[in-house]
Amino acid sequence: MKVKLNVKRFDPEKGSRVYFQKYEVDMDDQATVLDALIHVREYVDPTLAFRCSCRSAICGSCGMRINGMAGLGCKTKIFQVAPNGEEINVEPMGNMKVLRDLIVDMGMFWDKIRAVEPWLQPTGPEPEREHIVPNQAMIDLTVAMNCIMCGSCVSDCTVMEVDKSFLGPAALAKAYRFVDDPRDGHTEERIEKYSKPGGIWDCTHCYFCVQVCPKDVAPMDRILDIREAALNAGIKNNNGSRHSDSFANSVKISGWLDEGRLAVESHGYTNIPELLPLIPVGLRVMMAGKMPSPIHHKRPGSKYVKQLFEKLEG
């Protein structure tokens, strides 16, 4: 099978030029993008730089952007991304500094992981032998444990693109792994810490990390798991949980969303500095001739919605 690659290249030793280079190689039908890159390096162009090791989606070193989406070169079959022999775009991962060709500086990635304190912090007397936990308690954690630290989720995270202080999907998925570990003794402190700016409430639900993660960690879902734990633990002194509570309350009472109230309640009724900027927003809406009615009517049958909330939120 003919494989056409279009690889983004950059070599700081040769100046600041970033350019795309095309390669055409002959590969086996089952070949992966990484196989093709290795072939290029071995037989066509020894200057092409990229990381790899296991070639079986275990080590996490071959993260790269293939046709615009992050993923593992060794897990992406050529026929999946170029079923009709199309050219395949290969670029380094995003959100991290490119060192050379497809190699990025993962320093920021590891800093974030370290920042969530990814080690067990038990309290109480040390058990004589190992900690014994029921299997059931560990099942939810196994998903997060599957992470191989490839950086794909961080590469495509839309919030990290605009704010490097965001802890990001990989670190927060790792954080969840300890929040939910029955052996850990600092669950509340952890949740408090992860609820701060740059933490769980800054994720924008874009699903990029879920889509690109090669190990089905679904980092966003793990972030939402920590949010749920935060709400259950009553760690609520932030706009994120106020927004969540107000949203739920509005649907509970009326069956649907009261947007005006949601905007105010998310900031908190007494938070004047954050509420003042809402005034021009409201004025603009009024000028556009679409101020919603000040009375938020209930949807027909909303009493049943309320009953469902009472039964299930219990």
Partner: peptide, 16 residues
């Protein structure tokens, strides 16, 4: 195909 920022408008308007 990226995010419009709406979901974090009240949490982090600057990022949004």
């Amino acid at each position: 195909t990226k995010c419009c920022g709406f979901p974090i408008l009240t949490m982090n308007e600057k990022n949004s």
